[in-house]
Design a protein around this nucleic acid. Structure first.
Lengths: 343, 343
DNA sequence: GTGAAAGCGCTAACAT
DNA sequence: ATGTTAGCGCTTTCAC
């Protein structure tokens, strides 16, 4: 920049005003500066700007895994809102692991992002989130809330969604219904939802239990199967489908899990919905073209990301109102994967 | 940092050495500094560091659309390699638009990324890419090469892949075979591959033409249909499937296009493969669970991203060898979507 | 082994 | 309208 200033025969300050389009500059000078900048191939240094202004016009986003279509869509929603407001995004994957998440957040903070969007790896162990708040950076949680963390969050109505999805199965006459999630949990099966690391899953479990209970099924918590990542979704599904008291219906906590279940069923030669009824969260591509089509609870994924980014930008701009939790509606897409049990 | 230095009773320089783990510091001092930093909740400022060292330990990546599973996977591959080497990623979507891409690249450059990974919106109009090179930043292209740009690239063997995929159709006896791509082109149908904006698609078109010609089909270029985004993939497929001389087989340039074709066929009540044979690039989730399964040419997508990141990091570290183009193998996954034409 | 001081490229008073 | 100057938080000579 000082080269440009020299070439234009003005001071650095004036060049900065012309280049940065602020303060008062005469037209003649502006032209000269811009001309010189162009001639010299001037490239602004956003870091230096951040150093002196304290603002980076950058948002950070921490997702579980960008390859998961859910996160890809939410990220896109956030990126669009951010771009429209003149912010860019630094992306990190947490792999749903607290340590990895801590590192990611550390990096983003060191890079002086103006605010952070995070799908918390844990809704219970919130140290990483506190770090953000302690650093004085606005934080918006999406997909999951976190206990006792003073931050906005944008989530979907998971409990009612799960209830509705499960009722479909109960009403069709199923009693042996399994809820499958990859979320980790100290015990293999469900114990207490408030210790489940992912609040969205906890809510789905609650909705599942609600519907099971309403259907008069005893000990519904015995039907909740977590830690599917450890065992492998297909393996777990196979086990549940071929055990002593085989399940006749499955609620998959997300579309990736549903895909594993679908494959396992096919591998076992089981027909959906004749031998197995299957419902899931998220209207992934494949659920519509698989045969039969899978009945799903669709979430407004883009909106989750977009809304989160909007809230964050508002905070970055100084909104000091108390934290809010926005709950977005889910909606059911009925296809052909539910039928009465055959046995 | 100067607070920490003061609290530890040392100079800023010494505190920096202890905190930054470089230079020579006595154990006693290091402990005191680290202790003070901890107590004061010191957070390093990566920007300031970049300002003085000139290195940001950040890579930029520009993709067409992070929601596209291809880019999500490639991004993940790159992110993993980057993270392992201590780099983080700034992500931008170009929407396959040159202006948006220019902005994205401008931002990344201003943020002083150490290098840039880009899936060029155009392999022909390479001004945006030159900008990167002129700024003296290492550039690695992935998925697509760019004419006359001195940069490494990592691509897949698209021409041979397309040839193989098309041959399946030709060998099954098809003559009315359409190649569909969303890539834009001045003319509606194919004219010259060297003006196609996306080199990967250009190569696929060439492979398609190779196989068509080898199969003795005249004017194969009349079978290439571009600009599908403008018309809409489903609409175009419907048109091709119901016109005067309806096609009996389709080569979809990517899995998103194949999905549109699949839906259009179903809408029309057409059975695959009886009424329509369909092959596509990329082993997307749905292609394996749709009925029938879709025969695809799988690309090593993760590797494309990972390899690109590796090359880039090597360049960032000073590797000055002439640019290389890495061509990764594709592999065929035969499923049930190909059969002889029924008419 | 430690400290003083300059400098990275920009912005923001303040003065003129 | 324009210039001067200090300073953002760090690294890096260069002394000591």
């Amino acid at each position: 920049m000082s080269d440009v200033a020299a070439a234009a025969g003005v001071s650095k300050a004036t060049a900065a005003r012309a280049l940065g389009d602020y303060g008062a500059v005469s037209d003649a000078v502006r032209d000269r500066v811009l001309g010189a900048a162009d001639r010299l191939g001037y490239r602004p240094n956003a870091l230096a700007k951040t150093m002196s202004t304290g603002r980076s016009n950058t948002l950070g986003i921490v997702v579980g895994d960008i390859e998961n279509p859910f996160f890809a869509q939410a990220t896109r929603g956030a990126a669009d809102v951010a771009a429209a407001a003149g912010f860019d995004l630094i992306l990190s994957n947490s792999d749903e692991d607290l340590e990895t998440e801590a590192k990611a957040i550390g990096v983003q903070l060191a890079k002086r992002v103006d605010g952070l969007l995070v799908a918390a790896a844990s809704s219970v162990e919130t140290q990483n989130l506190r770090t953000v708040i302690d650093a004085g950076r606005p934080l918006v949680l999406f997909d999951r809330t976190a206990q006792g963390v003073e931050a906005d969050s944008v989530i979907a109505a998971n409990r009612s969604g799960a209830r509705e999805l499960t009722s479909l199965l109960v009403d069709a006459g199923h009693r042996q219904i399994a809820f499958i999630s990859t979320t980790t949990h100290p015990a293999d099966a469900f114990a207490r939802t408030d210790v489940l690391p992912t609040s969205s899953v906890a809510e789905r479990v609650e909705g599942f239990l609600d519907a099971m209970t309403a259907g008069g099924i005893e000990h519904p918590e015995r039907h909740v199967h977590l830690n599917a990542r450890r065992e492998g979704v297909e393996r777990m599904a196979t086990r549940l489908l071929t055990g002593a008291d085989p399940v006749t219906a499955i609620v998959a906590s997300d579309s990736l899990i549903a895909l594993g279940v679908f494959r396992a069923a096919r591998e076992l030669g089981l027909q959906i919905p004749r031998d197995l009824s299957l419902v899931a969260f998220d209207d992934a591509d494949w659920t519509g073209v698989a045969t039969p089509g899978i009945t799903v609870m669709a979430q407004p994924i883009h909106e989750i990301g977009a809304e989160a980014a909007e809230l964050l930008i508002r905070r970055v701009r100084g909104d000091g109102r108390p934290p809010v939790t926005r709950v977005l509606k889910q909606h059911l897409i009925e296809r052909e994967s539910v039928a009465p049990p055959s046995r």
